[in-house]
């Protein structure tokens, strides 16, 4: 049996909104480590990895490891029926082919339950070895989203280059070219507004802007985003979910031949 009570129900709504366009179906795994998911997009270029640790839940009960296959669009439809301030509880009985989402209003005057059919999903998992990245950039998530959106009106791919100068986002299209350079900036009022660049080696990687734009849907989950980059390796784009865990995207770079 499984019962997970999340006081910040709005968080789960935001998680679903950030991944439902990238991935259709996914197994949610529940274990002592937390409530997690690893799923690949249909073109096998991006992987989303989510972890919500048990400490973030008011009640985290799961007496054995459970994997629940869900259609993310259907799950998002159900979670849209929860208010942003609602408490969300997930419940599943042993051996059941359904999961129940219970929504409680903060004042406890409205309680709703939605039962959703589970599905069997054969998902293969990727192993992500620890890597020493050539460069790690932390910047405001809204700024990163803005740059990806702006560049996608000009070109289809973005070259992300980290040098001593800063981090450069470049694109090229039929109408012209665009370059945005962000320099390290720690002289800010709030720490989340800082841009911090750790560079061991210069690195330059090319990515499809369609994917980059898709993963910036996680922006409402965190004020900052971290880009971990190494030559010839997928980028890791991480949004930390305060005190609970993270949502990470692994995105394969394009390669010139």
């Amino acid at each position: 049996m499984l019962e997970l009570r999340l006081v910040q129900g709005g968080l789960l709504k935001k998680v679903l909104e950030s991944i439902k366009d990238l991935v259709n179906d996914a197994n949610f795994d529940c274990s002592a480590t937390g409530f997690s998911l690893q799923a690949m997009d249909s073109s096998q270029v991006a992987v989303v990895a989510l972890l919500l640790r048990p400490e973030g839940f008011e009640r985290y009960w799961c007496d054995r490891n459970i994997s629940m296959g869900m259609n993310l669009n259907n799950m998002a439809k159900m979670l849209k029926c929860a208010g942003n301030d609602d408490i969300i509880t997930l419940k599943a009985e042993d051996g059941s082919d359904t999961v129940t989402f219970m929504f409680e209003s903060p004042t406890q005057d409205k309680i709703a339950d939605f039962e959703m059919k589970l599905m069997d999903i054969n998902s293969e998992r990727l192993g992500f070895p620890e890597a020493d990245y050539h460069a790690i950039v932390r910047m405001p998530s809204s700024e990163f989203a803005r740059i990806c959106k702006d560049l996608s009106s000009i070109g289809n791919t973005v070259v992300i280059s980290v040098t001593k100068e800063g981090v450069r986002f470049s694109t090229r299209g039929d109408i012209g070219t665009a370059n945005v350079v962000c320099r390290q900036n720690t002289a800010v009022d709030k720490p989340e507004e800082a841009t911090i660049i750790e560079m061991n080696e210069p690195v330059s990687l090319t990515f499809g802007l369609r994917y980059m734009n898709s993963l910036t849907k996680a922006t409402p989950l965190s004020n900052t985003v971290t880009l971990s980059l190494s030559s010839g390796l997928p980028a890791v784009v991480e949004y930390r979910i305060a005190e609970m865990g993270y949502i990470r995207f692994y995105l394969a770079p394009k390669i010139e031949e």
Binding site: Q44, V45, L126, G127, P129, Y250, A252, K254
Partner: peptide, 14 residues
């Protein structure tokens, strides 16, 4: 020519 490899080219599958 710019190619888009899939993630399995980089990481092992379990």
């Amino acid at each position: 020519l710019i190619l888009q490899p899939c993630l399995m080219c980089f990481y092992p599958l379990y």
